[in-house]
Design a protein around this nucleic acid. Structure first.
Length: 436
DNA sequence: TGAAATGTTGGGGCG
DNA sequence: ACGCCCCAACATTTC
């Protein structure tokens, strides 16, 4: 039987939904009233340079949505701002806490944070329970026959699909237990300026899956002028949709789309098993011997979309203006930065981290190391994208380019920052010198 | 989820 | 008719 006045906390982080949420489900079934908590983590927010960062706005909007749902249930989100360890020190003074329930987060900072908090809570006699929620298979659930983690996608995906069954796709039926929330009078959602951010307006992609789009995904996904990808990245990043719900739909609708979800599991699995990749190291150590040119002016030209390569500039301008870039174009600009300009992939990774609304450490790092050739199962270093041929294949009418680089045919459009032939040869020489 | 260089083949023009 | 060359189209190798 629950002790008098004891509660449990459900700590939301990158799982901002009340439906199909593993930690919430277990908290609601614990037998104790559940206090939902969100912490604006000062350690993370302090690193964001842009004080009108749209991702903070997104979190804010999603918290408001959750708050409305919780108020209807007679409860309330308790939203705090600060360093999580300090917040827990204060929560412990206010409440008699039996346990904290949360979902796994596999990023290096999160792992350290959660370990420290679990240890602290233990000294206070509070249990810390963490669950798999944001992926279908995690850690060492899909491994080679000898028990070691896969580092190549194709065999991993084969095993992933073989292991998949209804059990792993089943939603947690949180709706049945909503009466278990702690009854509270509403606590106001703090305004963004109270945490040092500016409240702007922005319309984010819808969280509903367009099933017609997914059916045609395999045909359209590589054409950046078509709205052929679902743009659910930001919702997966912050957990406003459940991966189980999405994977169920993907399984029915389109194998290629399901594969993309498997890539996501793959890179999360890689980050957990090889945490060095999240700490700035190449998966393949010899790629850290590459003599990057790292020319600041060239990096600035790449960032600002004035390399003189229309497909590259279009992508960077789309990113700068919208916080999104089509995936095909992400590959092109990443190949161009690392191979044509010989700029360290970490520079590009950091720029994407700053700009992408759907930024996720595991996937972003995986993608950049893939492009640079330094990753597990990466593009071999000699696989160098030709921006002109990529354009011919994927934007033959120049529709995408024209949308983002309207001045293309005018005199003020810059000349190519580097000659393709020259850059290609220079890249092959530089890489082979490092790798041989 | 490349592109370029090199090799092979076969149809057609031509003497 | 035949051999020779050219070269586009495709295949294979290399980076």
């Amino acid at each position: 039987m629950p002790g008098a006045g004891k509660i449990v906390i459900c700590w939301f982080r990158r799982d901002l939904r009340l439906e199909d949420n593993a930690a919430l489900y277990h908290a609601l079934r614990s037998g104790f009233p559940v206090l939902p908590v969100f912490i604006f983590d000062k350690n993370i927010l302090d690193d964001l340079e842009d004080k009108s960062d749209k991702r903070v706005l997104f979190i804010y909007q999603m918290l408001e949505r959750m708050q409305q749902q919780l108020i209807k249930l007679g409860s309330s989100l308790d939203i705090r701002y600060g360093s999580p360890i300090d917040i827990y020190k204060s929560l412990i003074k206010t409440y008699s806490i039996e346990a904290v329930y949360t979902n796994h987060d596999y990023e290096p900072y999160a792992l350290e944070r959660d370990t420290a908090i679990a240890e602290f809570l233990k000294t206070q006699g509070v249990n810390f329970h963490s669950f798999k929620d944001q992926v279908i298979f995690e850690k060492l659930e899909v491994v080679k026959d000898d028990g070691s983690p896969y580092t190549i996608f194709t065999p991993y995906s084969r095993k992933w699909k073989a292991k998949l069954n209804a059990f792993y796709l089943k939603s947690y039926p949180t709706k049945k237990y909503l009466s278990a929330f702690l009854q509270l009078s509403p606590i106001p959602v703090p305004d963004l300026n109270e945490i040092g951010f500016e409240k702007t307006s922005f319309s984010f992609p819808e969280k509903d899956l367009d099933t017609e789009l997914v059916k045609k995904y395999s045909d359209n996904r590589d054409i950046p002028s078509i709205r052929g990808t679902s743009r659910l990245g930001i919702h997966l990043r912050f957990g406003t949709i459940s991966i189980r719900t999405l994977a169920r739909q993907a399984q029915k609708l389109n194998e290629t789309y399901l594969n993309e979800l498997i890539w996501r599991d793959f890179y999360h699995m890689i980050l957990w098993n090889f945490p060095r990749v999240g700490k700035g190291l190449a998966f393949k150590a010899e790629y850290d011997r590459i003599q990057w040119r790292n020319k600041e002016e060239e990096f600035a030209a790449w960032c600002e979309g004035r390399t003189g390569y229309p497909i590259v500039d279009a992508g960077m301008r789309e990113l700068n203006e919208t916080g999104f870039m089509h995936n095909r174009v992400r590959m092109v600009v990443a190949s161009f930065l690392t191979k044509h300009l010989l700029i360290d992939w970490r520079w590009g990774e950091a720029y994407f981290a700053k700009k992408l609304l759907d930024y996720d450490l595991a996937a972003n790092n995986g993608g950049w190391q893939w492009a640079a050739g330094s990753g597990c199962d990466a593009a071999p270093y000699f696989r160098i994208f030709n921006p002109y041929l990529q354009t011919k294949k994927f934007d033959p009418q120049g529709k995408y380019i024209h949308q983002w680089v309207p001045e293309l045919n005018e005199l003020n459009y810059p000349l190519p920052i580097v000659d393709h032939e020259l850059a290609r040869k220079r890249c092959l020489e530089t890489y082979s010198a490092a790798i041989r």
